[in-house]
Structures are given as C-alpha cells and as structure tokens.
Design a protein around this nucleic acid. Structure first.
Length: 790
DNA sequence: CCACCTCGAGTTCC
DNA sequence: CTCGAGGTGG
C-alpha cells in the first residue's frame, strides 16, 4: 500500500475525530449545534469507512466507538483509585438543616460566632447514578459505577453512548483526571422513551432514575444507546500532573466545564447558613420546572484547603452534606372515580382520594383527564395510588401500585348516559373525550355555559359563583344566559330562600337577611355593569366551540361588530387568520342555530351591546379576495392554483353563480375541476349562497377604511408572560404590549421574541433559557415599550 | 403529509 | 399546568 496515502488517511481520520468531537460537544453540552445533522452524519460515515479499511486508525476517542462492541456476559469489577464517597444526608428538610451543617463545620474549624461566614459551594443533588470517568491524556478510557465505594463495575461500553460525555477533553487537562458526576435521564426524554415503548407495545418504565440506572448497567451497549441519558460532572477522583489546579470547588467545576464536560448551571457560591437557605429555597421554587429530577441540594465547603482540614468520618466527608426536600410524591387510596360534565359536554373522570399531604397542600381530588389516561395508568377503584403535584400546582395521579391490590378493587366503567341529564354519551372516532349529547338541554352544560359567560375574562359578573348559578338553574330562574338580565332583586331573594330551605339551612336571622339582600343588590348591579363589554369578550363569553379568547379577539378585530360576526358566511370566517374549516363550521353552526339567534336577540334587547364596535379591518381587502373565498367553499378539486385560474375568467362570485352549463363547460380549466364545479353549483342553494357571500363581502369592504394606520412598533413580536410581575397585572402587561401591536401568547417556542418573567416563573422561563429566547423583567419590558415605570 | 406552533378546554387549591 | 387538537408552513 502507498505509504503517502496511509499517512494522509491517518491525518484525515484525526481531523475527522477532532471535528466530530467538537460538533458533539456543541450539540449535547452547549445545546448549540454548529452544523446540520446531515453534515455530521456525512463526516461520521467518512470516518467509519476510513477505519473499516484500516482498523489501526481506530482510537478509543473516535466517535464511531460510542455505539457497538460486543455484548457482555457480566460487568467487570473495577477498584477505584480514590474511593467514591457517599454524602451524609441531613434529614431535617427545613432551613434548620442548613444551619445545623454550618454549625458543625464552624465548630470543627474552631470558629467563634463573631468570625466571618464560611463560603460554600451549593449545587443540585441529582436523582441518578454516580459514575467515575477516567481520562488519560484527555481521552476517556474507563467509566465505572460507584458500587460499594471501593469497587464498582466497568460500564465504559454504555457510558460511551451518552452523547454529552466527551470522549476527548478540550483544553489542557492533566495527564490523569478522574471526573465524578451523575448519569441521569431528563424527564422529557423519559416521557418520549415511554411513548415509544407504548407504540412498540413494550413495557413502560416506572421513573427516570431507575431507567437510567438500568441503562447504565446494560450488558448490551446497543440497548443502552436506545436510552437517552444525560450527565453532569460535580467532582473529581484521582488526579496526576495538574499544574495550577483550582483552589475552590466552584473553580474546579468551572474548569471541568472548560474541558468540555457538562456541568449544571444551577449552582452558587453561598455565604454562611443564610446563603445556603436562600439557595435551597430558590431551587425549591424551581424544582418542578427543572427538566430533570433532583432530590435535594448538596452543600460543600468551597475552599479545597478547608475541605482537607475538615477531613472524613468513615466514608463521609465532614465538609459536605445533602439537604433534601420533602418527598414530592405520596401514596394514598383511590376511594372512588366520579365523572363531571363540562361546558362542552365533556365527561371527565375525577379521582376522589383519601386526603393526602403532597407538596404543601392536602389533595383530595385529581383529574384523570379521560378514559385512555385512566387505563394507561391502570387505575381501579380501591387501588393504592401515587399522587404528586405536577408543576407544583395541579394534583396528578401518577400510577397505581398493583402489588398492593387485595382483589376487592373495582374496574371503572365509563357511563353510557350522562349522569346529569341521561342523554347518550358518545366518543367520536379518533377523539379522546367522551361527550354528553344533551347540549343545552343538559342542566350541567347549561350551568357551565352560564358560569363561563359570567367568568372574569368574559363578562366579568362579580358575585355570581358556581353555587348560586347551580341553584338558579336548578330552581328554574335561569334557562339561558339572556335570562340573567331579567333577574330582579325579588327573584334572587326568593331563590336564596328556597335554596336554603332545600339545603335545610337554619331559619334566617335578621343579620343573614341583610347579608342576602346586600349580595342580591350587588349582583343586580354587577349584571347591569356587564352590559357594555368589549366585543371580543362577548364573543368569548358565548361559549362557541373552538372559540376561545384568541379567536374571539381575531373575530372582533377583523369584523368589528356583533352584527358583522353574526351574519358572516362560513367562507368569510375561514379566510381570517388562525381560523380553518373546523372553527369556521363551529361558528357558522352556532349563529345559524335558531335558539342561539333568539338568545342573541334577547341579549341585544336587554341592552347588551359591545362598547368598542368599529368598522371592519382595512386589511380585510387583502384577506377576502375572490381566490381566497373560492378555496374555502369546499369545492372538490379546486386547489388554490385552480381557484386563481377560475377567478381570472369569471368577474365575480355572482357571475359564477349565474353561469349556464354551456358557459361553464367553456371555461379554461381541467375537466375534473369543471365537473366538480358543475356538481357543486347544482347543489340546491349554492348559487344563492355565492350571491349572499358576495353581497356580504362587498358591504363589509365598503365599510372598511381604505388604509391601515401606521405600523405599530411591536408588530410581529410575540411575548410570553410568566410568573408574577412586581406591579403590573397580567392583563395590564398584555394591554401595554398589544397597544403597540405586539402579541401575547401562552407558550414559549423558537418564534417567541421575548419572555417576560416575574416572581416564581415556572417552566416557561426554563424553556426560554433552553431556547435562548430573550428574557425581560418588568422594567425591561417597560423600557422596551418606552413606557415610564408606574 | 408531517412537524411544529398555538390555542382551547378542563382541572386543583387557597 | 397539561393535554389534545386545529392551523399552517415546509
């Protein structure tokens, strides 16, 4: 073989290894890919083929060596050069735990109370598996589990498959460096893995920790490679030849990061017990929004010299402690499963639990979402179940503990009839939700519809709570939302008396009578005050299926008045942004339904009129073109391109309606389109529909102003609000942003321009950091908008 | 047609 | 907050 080409190949292989390792670091550790996946794959394959041709080019730090290798019979024991210590656990989960640790350290160092506070490094205690990584001359040569601390197991083959663990370190690492850290599985990776397992009909995993531990100890590296693992470094073991080694723990971690090792960003240098308590509290608030599980915080004396001075007791260092959090999951009994009927008729199973204290509150109910969810979690009435508070707020039944079954547990059966009105319950093909078909004939749906109408973000009728609405509906004072406006003081007082009677409430005292009168007076006033809502709120309040706050706002902005919305043909709805076929159908059906028409008429007669009606948007002219309208008529085969051709040949929609079959056949369009068009026009009523559509559109466009006002400064920018701002309410912040043309949305994505974070911001802030979205606080927002601070 | 983004809907507790 | 589903762009 030609010596030159061999030398070239060796150089090329080295170059490829280096490149691929750098790209992997950027991808897995920095979360900022340098090249597209396809480019990575191309280089990877090139290296593979070089190595296949000349196996001597294969080195242990080659990225091709991550996956592969033989299936082992058993794991080889490894004696640790420096024992892997355990850490003492502080059982007191209150701030006193941190103070106790600080006190022990100070006593051991012989410090008096008045002497300076000790500096600590605080970091997260990950819920994973401790691993020792041995790097010789910067190359990963061995990975081992902790085992008993003295002897662990060799799991190099599996650890190589973890993308964020560098096979070769960057910078100038010492000749020998053992890195210690935790292998864990991110919660989202765990969920994805389980989703895939379900798809494949495989058994699902119980929790991220056990899954990670199982993956690391796999004998077949291919299996381990299928388990998405992550890694954080938090310490070192044996070291040789390290000049200018760091002097503090914090600096040590920074240095490890500079070698390309992943380290957790959530760590700090804290001063004294107070600093530790603050960090503990800060992370407690963040805990559920972290993308991985932790079971506490680790405190370490920051100075490595002081660490040496403090020394060890048995296997435990005197200079470190794990300060845990109270368990966030609890075991309780599933007493019963009941169903609730929602505003749209959705039948939702709800778990009635034996009260249990989880994450700071007592939980007695938890939604089970739907039947599938319930089956997936394998829940039977009478089961012992694990309960947690998802995102620290909403109680969630995680799963049942099948081992604790006695045999007396009952299967939950989805009712076939609505528990309130007896109507049939149907679950549409492909839908997860079962629904009562009773519509507004169902008392539950009626009550929910009224509750929705009166809600804070809709008509904002104060004092009309769930209990009163139920009584009003039950005792026949209200049938439909319009009836609210016919209520009198006498009605309300009478209703209250009857409701109390029915509930067996003690005969009222004079005092109670006064309270009741006051309540009724306030309510009448609140109802009267709700008569001039913004149009968007009124539309939202109507409770039209698929029409929420955002869609209601779109309708109000574009069409301007209640009348314009009520009269709009289906195709017009479908031309508006974010409104497609399903939503347009829902809108059209709602306004065509005689009952709803009557309710709207009654509301108007009662004096309910939007206070912000305005001419339709000037931008409508671009939206309601003949082509756009044509494509939304659901004419088979009429693609946008064909619609364009058709529009070029027919002057208007009414002209299209008036075409004779002969004229139609003469159009320059493919035969199949013409056939479909002819069939469509032959449907009774369609020509009239076309004429009506045209008439509506021309009226609307005539009413719209000719051109739009100047472009708002924040146009095209999307904001997401999270947490509590110091002085602005959510609504106020939204109003400020929208006043300048910005949009406020609920979830963070790559397209989000800014995340405005306040106190106790949750997962959205974490997501924003992950995606590199700009983050503002209240002042930042006000500065951006050029609004003076309030 | 799929992947990604949004939005809608339902729910808990204090 | 989370899940499911509608809308849209590639």
């Amino acid at each position: 073989m030609d010596l030159f080409s061999q030398a070239d190949d060796a150089a090329r292989a080295a170059e490829l290894r280096d490149q691929l390792n750098r790209y992997a670091h950027a991808y897995y550790v920095l979360d900022a890919p340098l090249v597209p996946d396809a480019e990575y794959d191309r280089l990877f394959r090139e290296l593979q083929s070089l190595e296949r041709a000349q196996p001597e080019l294969r080195t242990p730090d080659s990225p091709t060596q991550r996956v592969g290798g033989p299936v082992l019979k058993e794991l080889t024991p490894v004696r640790h050069a420096v024992p892997m210590l355990s850490i003492e656990t502080e059982t007191d989960t209150t701030p006193a735990g941190a103070e106790a640790f600080d006190g022990r350290v100070r006593r051991k160092l012989g410090l008096e109370a008045h002497e300076a506070a000790i500096e600590y490094a605080a970091e997260l205690k990950f819920d994973g598996l401790a691993i020792n990584l041995r790097y010789e001359h910067g190359v990963l040569v061995q990975a081992a589990t902790r085992g008993d601390g003295e002897v662990g197991e060799d799991v190099t083959h599996n650890i190589r498959t973890v993308g964020s663990i560098p096979l070769r370190l960057q910078g100038r690492p010492p000749a020998l460096l053992e890195v210690r850290g935790e292998v864990y599985m991110r919660r989202d990776d765990f969920e994805r893995l389980n989703a895939r397992q379900r798809e494949l009909g495989e058994k699902t995993f119980v929790n991220p920790r056990n899954t990670a531990a199982g993956a690391v100890r796999q004998l077949d590296p291919y299996v381990a490679a299928q388990r998405p693992l992550s890694f954080f470094a938090y310490g070192v073991g044996a070291i040789e030849g390290w000049q200018d080694a760091p002097l503090t723990h914090a600096a040590l971690i920074d240095t490890l990061a500079s070698f390309g090792l992943p380290v957790c960003e959530h760590r700090c240098v804290a001063s004294g017990a107070a600093g530790l308590v603050a960090f503990h509290a800060r992370i407690a608030a963040l805990r559920n929004s972290l993308p991985f599980d932790i079971d506490g915080i680790v405190y370490k004396v920051n100075s490595l010299a002081l660490q040496r001075e403090l020394g060890f007791r048995n296997r435990e260092p005197h200079w470190a402690v794990a300060h845990k959090y109270p368990a966030q999951e609890e075991l309780t009994e599933l007493l019963d499963i009941e169903v609730q009927v929602g505003r749209t008729g959705a039948i939702t199973p709800v778990a009635r639990l034996k009260p249990v204290f989880v994450g700071g509150v007592t939980v007695t109910n938890a939604t089970l979402h739907n039947e599938d969810e319930l089956r997936r979690k394998d829940l039977k009435i009478g089961d012992w179940v694990i309960v947690r508070r998802a995102g620290d707020v909403i109680p969630e039944v995680v799963m049942s503990v099948a081992e604790r079954r006695s045999g007396a547990e009952r299967e939950f059966i989805m009712p076939t009839n609505c528990p309130v009105c007896g109507s049939h319950v149907v679950r549409e093909e492909g839908e997860a939700i079962a629904r009562c078909t009773g519509g507004l004939a169902c008392r539950a749906q009626r009550a929910q519809a009224i509750m929705h109408f009166a809600g804070r973000r809709m008509m904002d009728i104060d004092g009309l709570g769930e209990r009163y609405i139920e009584s009003l509906v039950e005792l026949g004072y209200i049938e439909r939302i319009a009836d609210l406006y016919a209520l009198t003081l006498d009605h309300l007082l009478e209703m209250k008396r009857r409701a109390d009677e029915r509930d067996g409430v003690t005969p009222e005292t004079v005092q109670q009578g006064k309270v009741a009168t006051k309540w009724a007076e306030n309510l009448i006033e609140a109802i009267a005050a709700s008569k001039r809502p913004p149009l968007a709120r009124l539309l939202f309040a109507l409770g039209i299926r698929h029409v929420g706050e955002s869609t209601a706002k779109t309708l109000a902005e574009w069409l301007g008045s209640l009348e314009n919305v009520r009269r709009a043909p289906r195709a017009v709805f479908a031309c508006l942004p974010d409104i497609g076929g399903v939503v347009a159908d829902s809108l059209h059906e709602f306004f065509a339904e005689p009952n709803n028409e009557r309710v709207l008429d009654e509301l108007v007669r009662a004096g309910v009129t939007p206070d912000d009606e305005h001419p339709p948007s000037a931008r409508l002219a671009q939206q309601l073109t003949m082509i756009e309208l044509l494509t939304r008529l659901d004419i088979r085969r009429l693609t946008p391109v064909r619609a364009q051709q058709l529009a070029a040949q027919v002057s208007s929609l009414s002209a299209l309606a008036a075409l004779t079959p002969i004229e139609l056949a003469a159009l320059d369009l493919p035969a199949d389109v013409l056939t479909a068009l002819a069939e469509w026009l032959a449907i009774p009523g369609k020509p009239d529909e076309l004429r009506a559509l045209e008439a509506y559109c021309s009226r609307l466009l005539a009413a719209a102003p000719q051109q739009e006002a100047s472009v708002a400064p924040m146009a095209g920018k999307t904001f997401v609000l999270t947490g509590t701002l110091p002085t602005l309410s959510r609504e106020q912040a939204t109003a400020l942003i929208e006043a300048q043309g910005g949009k406020v949305s609920g979830s963070v994505s790559k397209k989000t321009s800014y995340v405005v974070a306040g106190a106790e911001a949750g997962s959205k802030l974490a997501k924003a950091q992950e995606l590199g979205v700009s983050i503002l606080d209240q002042n930042g927002l006000l500065t951006l908008l050029g609004v003076p601070a309030p």
